[in-house]
Design a protein around this nucleic acid. Structure first.
Lengths: 365, 365
DNA sequence: CTGAAAGCGCTTACAG
DNA sequence: CTGAAAGCGCTTACAG
């Protein structure tokens, strides 16, 4: 390898001073400050390309204090919704002229401190957090606050105290539940995590609101459900039951829990009219249980999910679900953050977008 | 925000020279070069923590030329095998004392140049490429070669010209096919991509080798399969057919193609004894088609996959598959790369590990 | 319109 | 065992 080509190399080759070259090739040039004679500028540009000049980003950062990077923090990309959100966030960051520094927190176990400190040390100018998990808390956001780095969250939880852009999950579950009632379903079982974050409480509240004045709604922890559901479903009229299953950080682990739960209900001939699963991952677990037990969907038990996963499109599944339109939230979040960085306007503010119901065969009566 | 705490801040607070402090707090210290009196060292350490000193990584890079970063390039994390590989690679990079800079190329469309150049500009010391796609070629590796950055690949293709650590896919498909024969299956349909990269040719060769002397093997492009398979499967004895379906970069798109292909065969009552799907994603497509057409697995048609995806564990699927043991390859690749960076030994060399067959109900006769 | 100079925070020989 | 000094590649006032 030959020696690095720097601004000085280009200047020497042209008989100009490093400063002049710096004006053209430096990061200040992009921001269009000073002007040079178009001729000189062109000569410098041409020579830089000829010699293969590459700016030294580390040196630029040391001198200017601007890294031109925005961090994207997410919590594992196996989920399709998560992947779509991350992809949209990254694309918008690049479109806005920043580099995207991506960190998958699920690769680091519970040791969040180290990767977050690495971001601070990389001097990222802003942070977008995508689809937050329970383990990520205020104290983690504080690491950025202390360094003066603005943070915004997509589909997260307001409790961590940063502006939140998300889909209106409560409204979606309200409409999903109304749809179930319209289909004639009377015994409704909503399966959610046993945590009280926004995505989960939103689901519960939407479900509750839709059943107001229609019938009874009971909230039952996973451990008691086997004992209480059989009696509940025998009540007259509309019965809504919220089953709270243990929060498991790993998608598949939660899917298995839902599967085992549904499988038991099916074996005991205690199926609800409709399963409203917290997401498509969980719905898949219910479906696997139904297949195993020989129950037909929707003839023997109806089913809905959330997230618009790909498998739901197959005729064999034809899963009623919700498209959260994550890319809309993603773009909005990045735009707010960038506008804040460019000091165009002061505050970032939380916002909710409506999601889109996809009514398919699995929820029919 | 107050002023940044630098080595000089610490030195001033202690009445020492910046050089002395640098010896303790600098990145050279980690590599254990010079020694100071334990007392002074302790005082410096304590004061650094007290003031909240954070090393400026950009300045360290400018001066030393070492970024202490290894890049992980991958092509989308929706696949479970890919996620597991990436996670294992990242973990090993951190364990070896480097920072992991991850880039998801699937977020950048076909514009590979920009993100790769960003890695060069970030001065990463080495690169691990995980689960390469067709679109990534020699010319992309050349970007790193030109910058003198060593590259190693996990589960990729040898044609791009870098050392390759992978599982022995040919051997796995050989054993899978032998297993199918032992189960009494006589009409075998292998579904693969229509590309000639290592993972695909490995599958084909393993299949071929297992059927050598047993019967006829034909290779049929996706477009002709509908016309040729019905006749093929009526031949006497063992018949192996390799169906080459169009390569589609997106997992779900390929899954749909396999689904549509299988669905057509099932409708026409032209099912093979066993479908050997190129991976579990494709196997899922076959399964969806079977469900839709009312065919039971394995009673009416047997099925196998590759990759040990989670859904295969459910009794409703009970999918025979292969665990490629990706984390073993991942660890080996990172170790070779790091050993090269530390100049402990010269050359990195390609290596294959055996995969593990998981025989379940879906492949029984 | 161009150049000389200072300095970001650090590392790395080289002296004492 | 500690300190003075040079310099990595760049940006940013400040002169001319």
């Amino acid at each position: 390898m030959s020696k690095r080509v720097t601004q000085k190399t280009v200047a020497d080759a042209l008989g100009l001073s490093p400063s002049t070259v710096g004006l053209v090739l430096g990061s200040c040039a992009t921001r269009g400050s000073k002007k040079l004679s178009p001729d000189t500028e062109e000569r410098i540009r041409a020579k830089a390309v000829e010699l293969g000049y590459q700016p030294d980003r580390a040196a630029q950062l040391v001198r200017s204090g601007r890294s031109n990077q925005i961090a994207l923090i997410h919590f594992g990309g196996v989920s399709e919704v998560g992947s779509a959100a991350n992809r949209a966030i990254a694309a918008e960051i690049v479109r806005q002229g920043y580099q995207c520094l991506t960190v998958d927190m699920s690769w680091h176990g519970q040791d969040f401190e180290r990767p977050l400190n690495e971001l601070v040390q990389a001097r990222v100018e802003g942070v977008v957090i995508s689809l937050i998990t329970e383990a990520f808390r205020k104290e983690h956001v504080a690491i950025f606050a202390k360094a003066g780095i603005p943070v915004i969250s997509v589909n997260g939880d307001p409790r961590i105290g940063v502006p939140l852009i998300c889909d209106d999950v409560e409204d979606a579950f309200y409409r999903l539940t109304r749809h179930a009632l319209e289909q004639g379903h009377r015994k409704l079982l909503l399966v959610v995590h046993d945590v009280l974050n926004r995505p989960t409480t939103g689901r519960m509240q939407g479900f509750r609101r839709a059943l107001e004045g229609e019938g009874v709604v009971e909230c039952v922890p996973g451990t008691e459900i086997a004992a209480r559901w059989p009696a509940l479903r025998k009540r007259r009229g509309v019965v809504g039951c919220i089953a709270q299953l243990p929060m498991l950080p790993e998608h598949h682990a939660f899917q298995h829990a839902v599967y085992a739960f549904a499988q038991r209900l099916f074996c005991e001939k205690a199926a609800p009219d409709i399963f409203l699963a917290t997401n498509d991952v969980a719905a898949f677990g219910v479906h696997a249980a139904a297949l195993e037990c020989g129950l037909r969907i929707p003839e023997d038990v109806a089913l809905s999910g959330y997230g618009n996963y790909d498998f739901g499109r197959y005729p064999a599944y034809s899963l009623t679900t919700v498209d959260p339109c994550v890319s809309r939230s993603a773009v909005e979040a990045v735009r707010q953050l960038v506008s804040r960085l460019r000091k165009e306007n002061g505050a970032m503010r939380s916002r909710q977008f409506p999601a889109e119901l996809l009514l398919r065969r699995s929820s029919q009566s």
